[in-house]
Design a protein around this nucleic acid. Sequence first.
DNA 1: GAGTTTGAAACT
DNA 2: CAGTTTCAAACTC
Length: 684
Amino acid sequence: MGDRVEISEKENNNIEEREVMDTPERSKNCQIATPIAKFEESPVFNFLNSLSPIRPIKSVHISQSINPLSFASLGSVFTSPHVTSVRESRFLRRHQLSDPSKPEFSSDDQTTVDPKNENTANVTTHADGQKENIDPRDSECEPSYNCSKFVVDFPEDAQEMADYTCDSSVNAPFVVRDCQTNMEGVIHHVDQDKEGTSCDWDSLINASDLLIFESPVVNGSEQENVFTQPGDGTEITDNAGEKMDYEHLSGFYRGMRRRCLVFEMGGGRKKHMAGSSGSDSSALLQSDDNNTSSSDQKLLRTTKLPGIGLHLNALAATPKEYKLVNGQDSSTSRRLLIGPSSSVDFNSSNAGQELLSNGGLVNLSLEGEIDSVENAVVDEINPCSPKKKRRKVEQAGDGNSCKRCNCKKSKCLKLYCECFAAGVYCVEPCACIECFNKPIHEDMVLMTRKQIESRNPLAFAPKVIRGPDSIVETGEDLSKTPASARHKRGCNCKKSGCLKKYCECYQGGVGCSMNCRCEGCKNAFGIKDGSCAIGHEAEAEEDEIENDHETNMDPCGLPATPLRATRQSIEHPFSSKKNPPQSSFPSISSSSGFVDAFGNPNFLPPPPKFSKHFETVREDEMPEFLQEGSSSSPISGIKLSSPNRKRVSPPRSSSVETSIGGLRSSRKLILQSIPSFPSLTSNQ
DNA sequence: GAGTTTGAAACT
DNA sequence: CAGTTTCAAACTC
């Protein structure tokens, strides 16, 4: 921490920024602090102070100096490119709630002061309310690399949570962190009805306090840091716009926007969220970067968010990088990763606790799995580590964490672009050329997205579907693919034997199915022909069902955003090449009781790129509307012929179709299409 | 790091 | 719908 305390190295930073950074630690930074103190003590100051209602408070806003890059995407903070029109509306809505005052964060706003600036904001807030200056360098090392993941931290126990919230009725504060930027913001999600609540607005005024800039390096203390001024907590309310210091918020959101393409309510996922009506729950969202060293990772935990869903800019962190930082992290703070990976959290026991405290989260998983899950999650989360870039390049695929593309010709507006395909904006770490997949070009992104979706509604849907069964059972024949885990479209491999990541099935950690047109399939997760093939047929219907679930629900309990579905940011625990997936893999993907997929210690499947561990959904968890109606779903009527006939409709094998019949096809359509659009709407 | 291979995505 | 081209990731050296 000490290092961080030292502020910035960037001399370029504007004064304000410095103040911000320094402010927290004035005591430490004698240089700056001293002058200020003197100034404040001066008669002139007093005089001025008496004259002006304005409090001499700190430079809260100051932090703005943000790296333009990071904020570039102010434009549509919550609108993700993936968002369909419907979703867009949602996002808008969300946006209003969260930040009514600021209709627009233009990416260009950099000038505005935003305490929350990510890059600039290197201040870490401690629970005690003190802030530490973080060494900008930390952030610099990977300024924007990190994918923004939003993690929600919850207090260990309800009591803590209570502390955080200014009003018990009020939602818990949301802390958002941008892993890349290290920026954090705390948002209290308050019932709209309860806007005013008991919060001390003065505290709100000190947005700076609320804002938390966490350096990646922050370790165990991080969690504590997350919530600043617990009592004050409420910085933002949905309605808050009215009361909030918007500037602060704006900064906050900016950070969010940068990374979050989608911020939406988890309509479909509400269920997962557990019971919470969704309105009340609050979550601390963080996208964090905990690790300076990259070694520090935080455990993300999901909790039931009241209807809050974040579509993160891809959770793309590479799994390897993420680690459980500290025992503390895992145990102490509860963070929810909202986003694709969020589902994971549900599994963790801790998460469960948290959830319970909050009102009920769905506890999906086995505790035993928790650790692995956590690890996996953590790994993803920490994009900031110095290694990330390299990894991205090397492993990017492995994790779905932060996407970093290298597009040269597609302008990042085609599915060739991983970022775009994942529904996230390209970020600094991307090496793309002529990239249009940026907030600045939001319109274009949305338009393109729509076009693609018009062609293939499922284009942005998750490629791999994992059902509860998805995990291969240990000890069983490797060739057998989990019933529920399948690549929707199936692969078309000719030369790779489905043993390399060229193969989407393999990449996704699932076996090939009847849908695959691969030749010479040797997929370690389950070959197309052979035992697995049989299983596939039998499972075909099951798969459909599963698909439906997925489509409609976010296994994570998060709001299913179309985008999210696209790629699970979270990778299998084993995603890292170096790290054997074995243990983690199964645990993650399965909601319950999965055993090592292969039972083969030696076998280390690559981390699934599309993996849906988090997507795994139990049927029982399935939203009623889905359950009842998958068949009844409005979409159900849709036929296989999707705009994108090629990829959308999988069933190639006559056998499958035969067994399943038309029903199946209809179901699948439902699955795919629903998630993106209708489901959200309906849920909302 | 550059070049090759691969298969999805896009196009015809 | 099938074939071809384009593209970028995965892979190899």
